[in-house]
């Protein structure tokens, strides 16, 4: 029941995003053929506008777009003669997804471990070192970290290939560049959550039961400390999604991010809309999964409960 309700909310959200993007996109000046306007005769431009329905009134364009969207057709790209938006996404998505998921996993696994270790060494050397690392990691933007990683690990030491895409080794540096800041944020978040949990009475109960320290930390500490951190995975996923635009550009990765950025400059309306809808859908699905796992970890929240 909850899941069905959630599914419809997701559809409505996507529709709202589509509408807003459509309005915003058409309210910025310029159109896809602005740069051709000087060289091409007016009749040719007319024809091209007609081909992409750009000569129709906006409400009609909007309805036509929605009609295609319902059939999961994101339309043709104006810039690319040969590939429509569906193909663009299908081509670019594997690289973007690999980069995003790999970064998410790195950020979560190492962030959580770092946070837990720091909390258990509260006010110890390891705690200070990892929090110093976390602060540095949060403060350095990925577009600065990326060139630094390239300079040292690829150019100076030749450990990783760069500026091409193919083997797994190619993914290491971009993933690190993308994952560092979220990793640091997760670490800080987990540390404070863990510190709070380890002060709770039920941890004293676990101690009084004679459980080993590891048992207490893992079974009673970590699981409870994860609850607030899980709610943070949603924004984290959004952060990684948008982060890929920059990273894909720096590392020349053939992902969707590149098309998205280019499409805005070219006013390639179908690509702007298509990629925005696609990214939003990914994000909405992620949030949904986060929500589900939240409810699995915390028994106080029921899948059947109304509202959020």
């Amino acid at each position: 029941m909850y899941i069905i309700k959630r599914f419809f909310t997701m559809l409505v959200t996507i529709w709202v995003i589509t509408t807003l993007t459509f309005i915003i996109m058409h309210s910025i000046p310029g159109d896809p053929f602005a740069s051709d306007a000087d060289v091409l005769p007016e009749e040719v431009l007319e024809n091209m506008r007609a081909k992409y329905n750009l000569d129709e009134p906006l409400p009609v364009q909007y309805l036509l777009y929605l009609k295609n969207l319902v059939m999961l057709d994101l339309g043709p790209s104006i810039q690319s003669e040969t590939r429509d938006v569906n193909t663009l996404i299908a081509d670019g998505f594997p690289a973007s997804a690999l980069l995003g998921i790999q970064s998410l996993v790195i950020a979560l696994i190492f962030g959580l471990i770092l946070g837990i270790v720091a909390a258990l060494n509260h006010n110890g050397i390891i705690d200070y070192l990892s929090m110093a690392f976390a602060i540095i990691g949060i403060s350095i933007p990925s577009f600065i970290l990326a060139p630094l990683l390239i300079k040292y690990f690829a150019v100076d030491w030749g450990l990783f290939p760069v500026a091409s895409w193919g083997t797994w080794l190619h993914t290491v540096l971009p993933s690190l560049a993308l994952a560092t800041a979220p990793l640091a944020i997760v670490a800080r978040f987990m540390r404070s959550s863990m510190l709070e949990v380890m002060n709770q009475n039920y941890i004293k109960t676990a101690d009084a039961k004679g459980l080993s320290t590891t048992g207490i930390v893992i079974k009673h500490g970590v699981r409870n400390a994860l609850i607030p951190v899980i709610s943070f995975i949603g924004p984290l996923a959004a952060f990684l999604l948008t982060g890929t635009f920059v990273i894909e550009k720096i590392f020349a990765i053939p992902g969707i991010g590149k098309y998205f950025v280019d499409s805005i400059f070219n006013r390639d309306f179908p690509v702007i809309l298509g990629t925005t809808i696609f990214f939003s859908t990914i994000l909405i699905i992620t949030l949904f999964l986060v929500d589900i796992s939240y409810r699995i970890v915390d028994p106080r929240i029921k899948l059947t409960s109304k509202g959020d």
Partner: peptide, 16 residues
Amino acid sequence: IGLISQDPMTSLNPTM
């Protein structure tokens, strides 16, 4: 030695 603590509301792990 078994311990029964002062505060039953917070002495059990809420997620187990």
